Simulated scan of single mutants.
Amino acid sequence: MFSVLDDAFEKKYAVPQFNMNGTIWLDTILKTAEECQAPVIVGTTDRIIEELGGFKLLVQTFNTKKEELKITVPAILHLDHGQSIESCFRAIDAGYDSVMFDGSNLSIEENIEKTKKVVDYAKEKEVTVEGEVGSVGGTEDGVYSDMLYADIDECLRLVNETGINSLAPALGSVHGKYRGEPNLGFNEMKDLRKTTSVPFVLHGASGISNEDLKKAISYGHAKINYNTELNIAWSNALRKVLNENPELYAPMEIIKPSKEAMAEVIKNIFKRTGAYQKKK
C-alpha cells in the first residue's frame, strides 16, 4: 500500500478507500476499479469484521475475487479503524495489506505507545500502518463520536515516534451525512504539511465538494475514505426496485440495480480524486 500512496502523494492524486459491507460491495468495487484502471483500497471496518465472516475469510475472499476477476490494478485490503492492538495483529496475521490503529480517543502518550507496537509488528510482514490524531465526528457502523480537531504537535509526535506510513489528522470531516456544509481546516492542513512528508488520509469524504477535495489532495491527502456515499446509492436503488416491483423476488434481479448504482458512484469518485486512469 505504501508504494501506492507514495505514487499518489508524489503525483498529487488520491487513492479512494471504499468500505465493504458484504461481497456485493467487494465485487462492485474491484470490477469498477479494473474498468477505470484505478488503484483502489477496500476497507473493512473493525466493528463489523465478525459480521463479514472474520479476518481469514475476508482475506481469502478478497484474494480469490482478485484472481477470478483478473484484477490488474493495485487493490489493497485495509483494516479501517482498528480498535485494539489485538485486532490489528489478527488482521496482519490473516494477510491484510494494511491496517489502521485508531488511538484517537486515547491520550497522545498511549496512542503513540500502542501505535508503535502495531507498526513494529506490521514491519515484520511488510504491512503498512495508518494512525489517527483527533476525532472525526459523526456516525459510522452505529457508533457516534464528537468532532475534535487534531493537534499539530501531537500529529508530529505520532509520525516521528511511531514510524507510521500514513496519518489521518481529523481536520473537520465527519462520518455519515453532513449537517450543513463541510468546514475543513485547510489552514491546519497547510501548517501540518510544512512539517511532515508522510501522506495524509481523509476520513468521511462523502459529501465534500470537488473544490474542497482537490484542495485537500493538494495538501497531501493521498488516501480518501468513502462509505456513506456508496451506501446511500445502494439503499436508494434497492428501495426503488422493491417499491416499483412488489412481486419481484429473484435476488439477482433485485440486487443488480443497486450494484450498478454503486459502480456509478465509484467511477465518479475515481475521476474526482484523480485515480481514474482508463485511456479514452
Rank of each mutant, 00 (worst) to 15 (best):
G54I: 00
R90L: 14
G131W: 02
E51D: 09
S87P: 02
T64G: 13
E130C: 01
T61P: 03
V73K: 15
K70P: 05
E50I: 03
V127N: 08
S135D: 01
K56Q: 12
M100N: 11
S145H: 08
S84H: 04
I49S: 11
K66L: 10
T64M: 02
Y121I: 06
E130Y: 03
S98W: 03
R90I: 07
V133D: 05
E68P: 07
N105R: 02
Q83D: 02
I112P: 14
D120L: 15
E126G: 13
G95L: 08
G103V: 04
T72Y: 09
M100K: 10
A94T: 05
L148H: 07
Y144T: 00
D102R: 12
M147R: 13
I108E: 01
N63C: 06
F101I: 10
D102V: 10
K125P: 08
C88K: 14
Q83N: 10
K70L: 13
R90E: 12
S84I: 07
L79S: 13
F89W: 12
E86I: 03
E67T: 03
K66C: 11
V129N: 08
T128V: 04
L57N: 06
E140R: 09
K66S: 02
L52H: 06
I85F: 15
D120P: 14
D93Y: 15
L52D: 08
I108G: 05
S84F: 09
K66P: 11
H81V: 03
V73G: 07
I108R: 04
M147W: 08
A122V: 09
I71L: 11
Y121E: 05
A94I: 00
V143D: 00
G53Y: 02
D141F: 08
N111C: 10
A91W: 12
K66M: 01
D93L: 11
L69H: 04
D141A: 11
E124P: 06
I112Q: 14
K114Q: 01
I85V: 14
Q60E: 12
K117T: 00
A75W: 07
D93V: 02
D146T: 03
L52P: 10
A94F: 00
T115P: 06
P74L: 04
C88P: 08
A91D: 05
E86D: 12
